[in-house]
């Protein structure tokens, strides 16, 4: 093991420099700071409300163990305490009067023991509170929020891929009067992010009758300048002979687009698809403006509204947050290199 470590950390031709130590110290700290919070969220999401309320919090989801007493349906916490003879006993905590705790033997409730309350220790065991995940599926509108998010993400991405690739095809393959102007227009739309056209965009969607409709979320962002440029740049690198040859065979322009250019653009389309899924899944401000009734909420809006409640039910909120970040985590795990190089080459996110 030590040899393997020494091999991994050896320095070619020179020893350990203080900058190496500093680098690894910085990176290790980075791992803690970047991964730690998300890991903490995931661990916490498996705790019962009682465990969540504990301070200071425990790292793992320890749940206090409870027992029932004969002739009683309520559950009582199991605690350990020192008995009169000095031996440690494990009994149910029946009630607490002032500083005195009344313990009873779960098997024989007539045997009671009075001890100082602060001398008792709850008996705990590791238990994953899956009910945090299962309950919202049953009692809240969680499946609806999930479905709304999935619907918006998938439909919007399909529309974006289709209309952006059509526009990119026109700008990349054809020479026509007005091409420069259109390219400029597409570029100009980069300058108008949703933050500065919030009110009038709402007006347009309102006039179209799309307020409180998922289509009102999907349509306004479907045409993306970044998408058009990404695809256009890719299509520009395609050999033009292919298109010319297809024209010779009297293929229609649409057939050339659909049968030749689109399949060849698959890598660029995949990059745009990943970006679009990320944009739509994480979108917040625009849905916040257009979707005002809770049955149209996406996951992000539902999370926001739950965290804004007076009594935040953290056990459910944490579990819902984990579900919301799960698809992104999966996409990331499989496509990390792809995304990173996509960002490095296009400079967009």
């Amino acid at each position: 093991m030590n040899k393997a470590l020494a091999f991994a950390l050896r320095r070619r031709g020179r020893g350990w420099h203080w900058t190496d130590v500093l680098t690894y110290a910085y990176l290790s700290f980075g791992v803690l700071l970047m991964f730690g919070p998300v890991l903490w969220l995931a661990l916490s999401s498996f705790k019962t409300p009682a465990a969540l309320a504990e301070f200071p919090p425990t790292l793992l989801p320890w749940a206090p163990q409870t027992v029932t007493l004969p002739g009683d349906t309520a559950r009582y916490p199991l605690v350990t305490a020192k008995g009169a003879d000095g031996a440690t006993v494990t009994m149910a905590l029946k009630r607490r009067i002032g500083l005195v705790a009344i313990l009873v033997d779960p098997k024989d409730p007539s045997k009671a023991l009075h001890v100082p309350a602060d001398s008792t220790r709850p008996v705990r065991r590791l238990r994953l509170a899956f009910e945090n995940y299962v309950d919202p599926l049953k009692s809240f509108d969680f499946p609806r929020y999930l479905w709304n998010s999935v619907f918006v993400t998938l439909v919007a991405t399909l529309i974006t891929l289709l209309i952006n690739s059509m526009a990119a095809y026109a700008l990349a393959i054809y020479e026509f009067k007005g091409r420069g102007l259109v390219t400029l227009l597409v570029m100009a739309s980069l300058m108008a992010p949703i933050t500065i056209i919030l009110v009038p965009a709402y007006l347009v969607v309102n006039e179209l009758g799309l307020v409180n409709s998922l289509w009102g979320v999907i349509l306004p962002g479907a045409a993306t300048p970044t998408g058009v440029f990404l695809l256009r740049q890719y299509m520009l690198t395609m050999p033009r002979d292919l298109v010319e040859a297809a024209r010779m065979d009297l293929a229609s322009e649409w057939r050339i687009y659909w049968r030749i250019v689109m399949p060849l653009s698959a890598p660029a389309l995949a990059v745009l698809a990943i970006f679009s899924v990320m944009w739509r899944w994480n979108d917040f401000l625009w849905p916040l403006v257009t979707l005002t009734t809770s049955d149209h909420f996406t996951l992000q809006l539902a999370l926001n509204s739950f965290q804004g409640e007076l009594q935040v039910r953290w056990n459910y909120l944490l579990a819902m947050t984990v579900v919301t970040l799960l698809p992104v985590a999966i996409v990331f795990a499989f496509l990390q290199r792809f995304i990173a190089s996509g960002i490095a080459t296009t400079g967009m996110k």
Partner: peptide
């Protein structure tokens, strides 16, 4: 080919 994309830009970016 440009029409759908431009329609969206016009309706949801330039008009606003």
């Amino acid at each position: 080919f440009l029409a759908p994309n431009l329609a969206f830009f016009g309706l949801f970016v330039f008009l606003p």
